[in-house]
């Protein structure tokens, strides 16, 4: 139960940081970091898909509602929630060493960095292509994905050093 409250607090604070702080950073159209995916990344790995998928959908939908982009965040977060078990399996060398809690502390910096890079990149790629909904400016959209991903990855990894230490 205490764990549940912890995740609720995490959900609310990540969504608020996303819509009130990061969505307001208007440096350029190339830099739109989305760090709320950390909520989905940090759910326990043993949590069954019938909980993770609806949770991810709901998280995406909440951000959609706040940013008037109905459906695109929901689609992207549902996708990364579905590939999450696959990602964590593929980057873990020793299955038994992997912790149920996919934070940095239990899995090490390297593991967490790979995990973040893959999850964030897939999320951003789906998000930006759905948002613009054309492959016409492929290069430009690709730049947006890469630059925003780098920024998001940096913030997410940094957050593991500062906020989510336990």
């Amino acid at each position: 139960m205490r764990g549940g409250i912890r995740y609720i607090v995490m959900f609310i604070s990540l969504v608020l940081v996303q819509v009130l702080v990061l969505n307001q950073i208007q440096v350029s159209g190339y830099l739109n970091p989305y760090i709320y995916v950390l909520f989905i990344m940090l759910l326990p790995l043993s949590l069954p898909l019938y909980i993770v998928l609806p949770l991810a959908f709901l998280t995406g939908l909440t951000v959609d509602v706040f940013s008037n982009t109905l459906g695109i965040h929901a689609a992207a977060t549902t996708f990364i929630a579905y590939i999450r078990p696959l990602v964590s399996r593929s980057i873990s060398t020793h299955e038994e060493d992997r912790s149920d809690y996919p934070g940095m502390k239990y899995n090490g910096f390297r593991w967490f960095l790979y995990y973040t890079i893959i999850m964030v990149f897939f999320h951003h790629a789906i998000l930006f292509f759905l948002e613009i909904f054309t492959f016409a400016d492929f290069v430009q959209t690709f730049y947006r994905i890469v630059l925003s991903s780098l920024f998001s990855i940096f913030i997410i990894v940094l957050s593991q050093f500062i906020v989510f230490r336990d």
Binding site: Y50, L53, P54, F57, G60, D64, F79, Y82
Partner: peptide, 21 residues
């Protein structure tokens, strides 16, 4: 394979929302 079907259903709902927006 419920996970896969749930995933497909949620994605369809999300895309439906995108294209109806």
């Amino acid at each position: 394979n419920y996970g896969f079907f749930l995933f497909i259903i949620l994605e369809i709902v999300a895309l439906f929302l995108v294209f109806n927006y």
